[in-house]
Amino acid sequence: MNRIVEKTWFSDKVAKIIVEAPRVARSRKPGHFVIIRVDDKGERIPLTIAGADIEKGTITLVVQAMGVSSTKLCKMNAGDQILDLVGPLGKATHIDKVGTVLACGGGVGVAPMLPIVEGFKKAGNRVVSVLAARSKDLIILEDEIRQWSDDVIIMTDDGSYGRKGVVTVGAEEVIQREKIDECIAIGPAIMMKFTSLLTKKYNIPTQASLNAIMVDGTGMCGACRVSVGGQTKFTCIDGPEFDAHQIDFDELMLRLGGYRDEEKAAFERYV
């Protein structure tokens, strides 16, 4: 069992949870995720490891309440136990000194982006981050991202904070302003799709971290399959990061809706 040591709200739907998982804290690298099951009726859901403290033996998760499982987790408090937690899963992000890195994060996607931004900065890169959300209260981890970025641009759909507009507006400005050697995009599938289309135009190598639906997270079921360069890949063991220009985002978006009716029914039963 894994005890929650701290829980704070970023907004009314997004919570930060620090949980005891000493082995995972020691083994994890940027880009890794865990699978958790809240209780004995719960489903297994993937969550990125946003940070870790090896001394304290804890990892940080940032979770947005979407349906039953994420809502259940968001409702837990310090002292509560998460029944099952396994990880670290997936392939770690490939971090090198490349020059200038453009990091685009949308919504809770900023949480998984944080350790990657940190990694690129520590590897000696110049890092420019673009954080985007629907409105001001959904911008998370701004201070932490600033700590590891040379420049941060904030975009909100409604203009309530930073500049008004979607992530690609801010990203394109940066691209026109300076030479970008690599781009990272993490957020909703639609956001990653358009970021990828943008960087393709400018021929900038881009990695996207996919949030496919998962069950086991160990390569056993194939629920998480995506098409990359015309080949079927399993997000949990081959990813979660892939060459964004090769990803079939339209298929990913259709597949994310694969259980929508069942999930909606479950959520209605839950509330």
Partner: peptide, 21 residues
């Protein structure tokens, strides 16, 4: 544990899954 698929067109549509899943 690794399920095989047939790699035929349309196999990644929703409602098509491995027996393991």
């Amino acid at each position: 544990g690794l399920p095989r698929f047939m790699n035929i067109p349309g196999e990644n549509y929703n409602g098509i899954m491995s027996s393991n899943e």
